[in-house]
Nucleic acid binder design. Structure first.
Lengths: 200, 200
DNA sequence: AACGTTGAGATACAGTCGTACCACAAAGCT
DNA sequence: AGCTTTGTGGTACGACTGTATCTCAACGTT
């Protein structure tokens, strides 16, 4: 039945299957055959559309960073512009935390990739997912909040942002490991923001 | 040459070999044969002294938590008792960060175990390494600091400690991923502590 | 109508994995 | 002295891995 087929679409399905396995059973379990079974196709087709395992893994990582980036971007865009810095920070950091099943699955897969990249330079995660862009954006937001007098001027916006991102990262870990609920994690973030933005 | 041999000692050597592999090439690469080669013995001996791979992995995790715990405990004990809460926090949090090659290797192995445990319930890390004990201890320290007036009474010691530990955890990740130096990470921790303990 | 390209199935191959098994030498015990 | 335990080597087995190959049906082009 060789109807003409959209290779890009096929690859996306296979990548999604890979990430589904990675988030549930780990990257370890993500063999070519398992990906084929998860996608409901033959092993041969995985080879055909994806050629290598390396390229499959690479597109899995690319898809993952795109998803995480999109989640933050969408959440921020949905709230329009011109909202108070404190709200921006809360929304953005909240978008990183694994709140629903999808984001939790993605964060699990991300953690697997991250750990793999620490020892195997092959599929290394360059930085955090777009860390520089996010970091610089939030630093700008916080800097403006200081200039507006909403935040004490003896705060270092750069270090505050780094600190908030690292905190959120740590909270993500503990939520994934089920030592904490997402609600508790969000409460910690809000607590930090409350101290950063004193009641006017 | 069947001289009588210390099984416990042998197991410790094999466990060390496992962790050496895990921290350099990842848990993925830690096969029985690789552990044997790293320890300079035959595959058969690894089987003999360690029987299973599961038990080898388990003792690797146990050794790792023991090391990390010991690092914190030693560092704290080396400073004697009766020192200011701010110093206690700085020393303990600093002991978690990967400062030298050994602690960096251990944290790398720990991350590998942690990631593996998220998807594979077999070798799951129960909590953080002794998270409850450490958390409760530091909370007590901070509570006393509040009672002494060194820390503002509108701070929640529980959440402050959770926040500091999650922050440190996030910093460890970024240091391992070489997005930050240990010095930068330590500076962030000190910055946070400076705000928690205002200049007297 | 003929043919080359594309999509798909099945299977083969070489390697690695954890584990099991067989053999045997050195030591301790009686 | 003889036998049982303990330590060690080598190797085999079945399962799984990524990749390569051989085959063929259905379509588009000429």
């Amino acid at each position: 039945m060789p109807r003409r087929v959209d290779h890009e679409e096929r690859r996306r399905e296979l990548t999604a299957a890979l990430l589904r396995i990675a988030s549930t059973r780990g990257l370890q379990a993500a063999s070519m055959r398992e990906v084929a079974a998860e996608a409901g196709v033959s092993l041969r087709l995985v080879q055909y559309y994806v050629t290598d395992k390396r390229t499959l893994m690479a597109s899995g990582l690319a898809e993952l960073t795109a998803r995480l980036d999109r989640r933050v971007r969408d959440r921020a865009a949905a709230l329009g512009s011109g909202l108070p810095p404190r709200t921006v920070l809360e929304v953005v950091l909240g978008a990183i935390l694994p709140t629903d099943d999808d984001s939790r699955a993605d964060q699990l897969a991300w953690t697997a990739y991250y750990a793999a990249g620490l020892t195997d330079p092959a599929n290394a995660v360059d930085g955090q997912y777009a860390p520089h862009a996010l970091e610089r954006w939030l630093t700008g937001v916080l800097t403006r909040a200081i200039e507006d007098g909403q935040v004490s001027s003896d705060r270092d916006p750069r270090i505050e942002v780094v600190s908030l991102l690292a905190l959120t990262n740590g909270l993500v870990s503990s939520v994934l490991g089920q030592q904490r609920t997402v609600e508790d994690a969000l409460a910690v973030v809000r607590y930090r923001l409350d101290r950063l933005f004193p009641a006017s």
